[in-house]
Design a protein around this nucleic acid. Structure first.
Lengths: 207, 207
DNA sequence: TATTCTAGATCGAACGCTCATTCTATGTTA
DNA sequence: TAACATAGAATGAGCGTTCGATCTAGAATA
């Protein structure tokens, strides 16, 4: 259960960074299994392989650990949407990457943490701020991407219409997080195909 | 803040039922604001207007309160899908009720509790069981409804294909719970219209 | 009708425990 | 030796839950 460091770094700075990452990995596991409030510093410290008190050398308090976990999780989403925008044939890229993204969303372990993050955002202003800033950045990226696809197909949408399409696309994706928890038996590959069709239709909707 | 009983019932049985409901209403509020683990029996008892100890006359423990809240929330979803099936012109009924359902999902207060429930289901086997049984019942209802719409339009889908469409439809709806938390500024009416279009397209997808 | 009885409603203190956090002492290393 | 890493005990608050004492209202009794 304990996370051991395979190659301990030599310099102090990188050693500290590794120790921080070790705590975050342990915290992510605990938060996934017990939620932000159900997980205790004692549990996290046991899995991270250090004393409870020592964690406070690397994080000011539990809230700071939660913030770091949330920021870390959202960063992957941000790089993903940015990558999408950079693809050459954007429409095919979007739809092909979608299947991959859908399967990611359908992984129950990561879904549990992502849903926990949004639940916490609904009541914790600090987490809400991190989540909403990341979401705004993602939406901006997606709006540019979708606008490019749509205007290539001859649609000249208002910003509002584009924003709405982004919302529907995001709802579709994020909804999978809830689906995989509510119905763990769903057929992941087939649902991914079905989502591809839905995205295709969405991109052809009237403005 | 305290919930007072407007018309105290005369009989013992209904008085007890009212008291139970009073506790559940207070608990729902606390769970929405602080989460299942963040809310304390002391807080709930204060809002319900009774002593902490007295709550244990109506519920075995905190877990039982959580279970009751979860079951209560899911019951409304179940009646909604059952109503849908009973509508005469099912396709129009589905799409028209969709807009209404979408606006419900976009209410931030109720969204917070619903997301909390799924987050808890990901780690609490008791809650998971309640959630998954309700979800299965909803999916069964929706499968009958969608199959009727599709065969009226000449599609003869496999059960798997119908199940996949139900998953996509559910993902779209449930995703709105996360969207309204991540982006509270979204335009609710316009997004509802856009969702109607997406459902329309979904019902016309090839088998 | 007046009084006693009784069973459930209710309270509030108390219990044992766990929590996040702090502090002090010791080990380690350059 | 100086600075940092680390452990582990200590602290005080808050948790879920239990329990015995009181209150209350209606039934039983006289």
């Amino acid at each position: 259960m304990q996370i051991t460091d395979p190659t301990p770094p030599t310099t102090d700075a990188s050693r500290a960074a590794a120790r921080r990452q070790q705590i975050l990995a342990a915290a992510a596991q605990c938060f996934r299994e017990h939620g932000f409030h159900g997980a205790s510093i004692a549990q996290i410290s046991k899995i991270a392989g250090m004393s409870a008190g020592h964690i406070y050398h690397y994080f000011e308090n539990k809230e700071a650990i939660i913030g770091a976990i949330v920021a870390q999780d959202l960063e992957t989403l941000l790089t993903l949407t940015a990558e999408l925008r950079a693809a050459c044939n954007v429409r095919n890229a979007l739809i092909e990457r979608a299947a991959e993204g859908v399967l990611d969303q359908l992984d129950p372990a990561s879904a549990a943490l992502k849903v926990e993050i949004v639940a916490e955002a609904a009541r914790n202003p600090h987490v809400a701020r991190i989540v909403r800033e990341a979401d705004e950045a993602c939406r901006r990226e997606l709006m540019v991407t979708i606008r490019a696809i749509r205007s290539a197909a001859g649609h000249d949408d208002t910003p509002g219409a584009t924003a709405d399409m982004v919302e529907v696309l995001a709802a579709l994706f994020e909804g999978l997080l809830l689906r995989t928890i509510r119905n763990p038996d769903l057929d992941r590959r087939r649902v991914a195909q079905r989502i591809q069709l839905a995205i295709n239709d969405l991109l052809d909707q009237p403005g």
